[in-house]
Amino acid sequence: MFEIRVICETPDREAVVSGLRSQFNIGRVRSSLSLTSGGERLYITADLPAANPWPAPEQAYAVAPSIVREIGWTARAAAERPLYTDLGREFWLRKAAVLDRIALADDRENAPGDAAEAATKAARRLMDLDSASGLGPSGHADGPYVPDHPESTRNPRGYVRQEYAIWHKNNQ
């Protein structure tokens, strides 16, 4: 753990914090007025991010149903609730996971398409849902990263793999 001190102009504060968040796991940002520049002095506690905190796709989806079966499940679940109302966490988790698996297959076969973007959007939807539900510090079950953690924000699809592996382990 280390502390970063930055002196910046007030309008640049969010860009500075966002840039630091993209490179480090940062804690609460404390600030005070800078006596020399008239801007802000920011104090941020930070850690280096872990090399790869997420389960590998092969590990997360090792016992997952086939992609075709998961597409069928999500289509049936969506058809039962028009306009995507009240679909629940399981729907968004399984949808995000199947889209992640499709995007991974596209990457392996070097097939350009929209799968990666769709997978990221679905992952962010799951993270928003989890964040709004007020998950505890250990995530949904035993996961190390909650949806608002900088690592989760940096890699939404990694968050889906973490949560899918935990969900599947608890729902066998």
Rank of each mutant, 00 (worst) to 15 (best):
158 G>C: 11
97 A>W: 05
86 D>T: 07
48 L>W: 14
6 V>E: 08
132 A>E: 14
23 Q>L: 15
84 Y>F: 15
139 G>P: 08
135 L>P: 00
144 P>V: 07
5 R>H: 05
138 S>I: 02
80 E>D: 12
38 G>F: 02
112 P>K: 13
15 A>T: 07
122 A>H: 11
90 E>L: 01
70 E>V: 12
152 S>F: 00
69 R>Q: 14
121 K>R: 12
124 R>S: 06
115 A>K: 06
125 R>T: 13
78 A>F: 10
142 D>R: 12
33 L>Y: 05
57 P>L: 01
153 T>N: 01
149 H>Q: 00
31 S>F: 03
65 P>V: 00
73 W>Y: 11
81 R>W: 01
146 V>K: 01
122 A>D: 11
25 N>S: 08
66 S>C: 10
34 S>E: 02
7 I>G: 01
16 V>I: 05
79 A>Q: 10
62 A>Q: 05
2 F>P: 01
162 Q>N: 11
10 T>V: 12
47 D>V: 11
43 Y>A: 05
111 A>R: 15
150 P>K: 01
151 E>A: 14
102 I>A: 11
156 P>I: 07
81 R>A: 09
156 P>T: 07
89 R>F: 03
36 T>A: 01
137 P>V: 09
141 A>D: 09
87 L>Q: 04
69 R>T: 13
151 E>K: 05
7 I>C: 02
41 R>Y: 08
106 D>F: 07
9 E>I: 07
145 Y>W: 09
122 A>W: 15
93 L>N: 13
120 T>P: 00
25 N>E: 14
62 A>S: 07
4 I>Q: 06
145 Y>E: 01
104 L>S: 07
122 A>Q: 12
62 A>V: 04
88 G>R: 08
169 K>A: 15
14 E>A: 05
102 I>E: 10
9 E>W: 09
149 H>K: 00
38 G>R: 01
81 R>I: 00
52 N>Y: 10
38 G>H: 00
36 T>W: 05
127 M>F: 08
110 N>R: 14
82 P>W: 00
161 R>T: 02
11 P>D: 04
30 R>T: 12
148 D>T: 12
144 P>H: 07
37 S>Y: 02
115 A>P: 05
126 L>E: 11
36 T>Y: 02
34 S>G: 03
70 E>Q: 15
